[in-house]
Design a protein around this nucleic acid. Structure first.
Lengths: 130, 130
DNA sequence: CCGTATCCTTAGTGATACTG
DNA sequence: CAGTATCACTAAGGATACGG
């Protein structure tokens, strides 16, 4: 594959849908929820507790989107108190490896990036103070 | 690696920085800019034209962040009219494969996701109209 | 327990105008 | 050419309260 094709790929030149899906996956919570569900079948409350910082609202919204896209299966039991279990579908599971690749890259380069940030100072106003 | 470790990875349990970096990469423009720069050295205007829909402002901000994180090198020539060229650093280039993995996944599953969306209807208000 | 509804704050984004 | 500055707007996200 040529470099130019790389560009087109990530751009999603094949249609607006690709960008849309990519954006959806890369948002604040989606990868997190998918990663957490990689452990197996989990209830709403379990997810809420295991994902630090997520609000009920965002968990619900994220789960709805994942369900709509067929990455997560939702199963509600007609019991009282209610019980709902979420799990990854086959497609959802297939997201794990590429997601892991990205996470792996990030982990590997955290030191470099932190070092780079440490020495960086905005060019335009470098001499503004002191 | 265990499933639980997967979760921790993507979560960025190793510190807040990881989540931060992941978020940064996954935002609306970063991957796009990196992918475009994969073609080689480009000027500001070239980038602006090759990335459909990006504003000057967002291009500038994205480039600054990438520069700060050491993924992109900026070289300004003291000429008139001014000329500034951007290129990927080694670290920046190393982002391409994992990014491509994600893009590849998305492309592969677009049909499935679109099909899933087509049949999806929100549960709670399924019978609200008509 | 598992959500939905509502309000509110703020970060992200775009448009425009201006400068070295 | 390559930005910066400013304004205005939108949508994402969080907090809270309530409902099935």
């Amino acid at each position: 594959m040529s470099d130019y094709e790389h560009t087109c790929l990530i751009r999603g030149d094949g249609g607006a849908t690709l960008r849309e899906i990519l954006d959806q996956i890369c948002n604040k919570w989606t990868l997190l929820v998918v990663a957490t569900l990689d452990q197996g079948r989990l209830r709403f409350t379990d997810l809420h507790q295991q994902i630090p910082g997520i609000s009920q609202r965002m968990l619900t919204l994220t789960l709805r989107n994942l369900e709509r896209d067929g990455l997560v299966a939702r199963e509600a039991y007609a019991e009282v108190p209610p019980r709902v279990e979420y799990s990854l579908t086959a497609v959802g599971k297939s997201l794990i490896p590429p997601a892991l690749a990205l996470a792996g890259w990030a982990i590997e380069h955290v030191p470099h990036i932190e070092a780079s940030r440490a020495v960086y100072e905005p060019r335009t106003k470098a001499a503004q103070r002191s």
